[in-house]
Design a protein around this nucleic acid. Sequence first.
DNA 1: ATGCTGCGCTGATCCACATCAGTCGTCGCT
DNA 2: AGCGACGACTGATGTGGATCAGCGCAGCAT
Lengths: 242, 242
Amino acid sequence: MIENTPLVRKLGAFVALSDPELSVLASLHKRRRTFVAGRDLVHQGQSYQAAYILASGWACSYKLLEDGQRQIVDFQIPGDFLGLRSVLLHVSDHSIEPVSDIEVTEIHVADLLDAFAQTPRLATAVLWAASRDEAMVVEHLVDVGRRDAAERMAHFLLELGARLALVGLGNKDGYACPLTQYHLADALGLSAVHVNRVLRQLREAGMITFRDGFVAFDDYDQLVKFAQFDPSYMDHKGPILR
Amino acid sequence: MIENTPLVRKLGAFVALSDPELSVLASLHKRRRTFVAGRDLVHQGQSYQAAYILASGWACSYKLLEDGQRQIVDFQIPGDFLGLRSVLLHVSDHSIEPVSDIEVTEIHVADLLDAFAQTPRLATAVLWAASRDEAMVVEHLVDVGRRDAAERMAHFLLELGARLALVGLGNKDGYACPLTQYHLADALGLSAVHVNRVLRQLREAGMITFRDGFVAFDDYDQLVKFAQFDPSYMDHKGPILR
DNA sequence: ATGCTGCGCTGATCCACATCAGTCGTCGCT
DNA sequence: AGCGACGACTGATGTGGATCAGCGCAGCAT
């Protein structure tokens, strides 16, 4: 029996993977490594590095501007790739920081590309995963571009919850969340001060409580409505491609 | 000799494609179609539609919010895929509108996936193209999240110029640009009024002139510096993967 | 015990950008 | 010739969120 990693779980939601495909996938996993919170594992501008699959903990990818501001582009949770894009584009256009202590398994891109040749369905699955990640970034863009601070916060925390629920790390009551208010500020294009105020508003409105490393959805339905959250693109039941 | 479409040109920048690969790629192109400016070809929420490759003209993909605001996520120029993500995710999370009259060629996703099986390098190339598109969206996110209106505008127009230059439709002097100020507003998360003011500022600063369907870089170097534009990730010479 | 650092939290002030309410010029339509 | 419709453009006024300047608390090192 082949082990049920977060990645297998994620890809399995899209492509019904056969046993040979699963074993090719398993053979990609090389060294297991750990990184401590806060110390970057990839630096913007770095020209080569490995790609990883996140096994436990959270990370974030971000870009730094010259004036010291930063924009967090996405958070990675277990089952997500780290640095795949950097490797494909052969230069990292962003940095990656572990939010908590993390465990990863290294993958060699050459192996990944070989695997595509052996099992093309795997290529499709990875392309699908990349598309889903892009959809996430797009939603994030809409957050930042067109929603006010409170909607933005609500929408963002809901989306994170939905992603975590997919890998079994959360549900409609809430989830454990190692982010600081500074992380949220850098992700949402707000100041940390304003993040604090907005969290207070949402808490006082009885919709969501962010406290002590835990996000609690106090009124999930109201929140979904307030944030105009539409989970359809991550909602399907069972593999799309058989 | 196999024809040199914008797509071949784009993928060729990454993967050195062999003749058999080129012919597989050519065989994907099915019906040629045209669409008129302004009438959507894909609606948000639509559950199935074809994917296309843009042959001429510009399009944009956008998301609509319930309150009528819209966020343009990306513009597509010749050589770009239209709706590939929608097809892979089996539901469109966004709409696509032709900015000008456009010509496209339809591709069947089943054919594309078959092509991956025959020529895995093609899968790699498409995954690369998807990564590059994602990098674009990421840069756009940084624009909207962390740059002020003028930097945002400058950066955005520079990036568009760099993309167009890759397919031979622009250079450091400028490019033909069918966008209205409303398009720019919806893309950059600004009001049309403010777009107008910002364009005036940039023009009066002698950096860029947007007028009569043409973007002119009046002082490219100053502009690059002002916008903190870093084209490294779209700058490489020759195929990365041989 | 004492300071130091990281994180959450708050009030006062300021400014970038939105919104409102227009003008003007150029199409294409009848 | 007249009339919408659309896009570029402008001034006056309003506001969401940044910035500044600060407090409180817990954990940790000295």
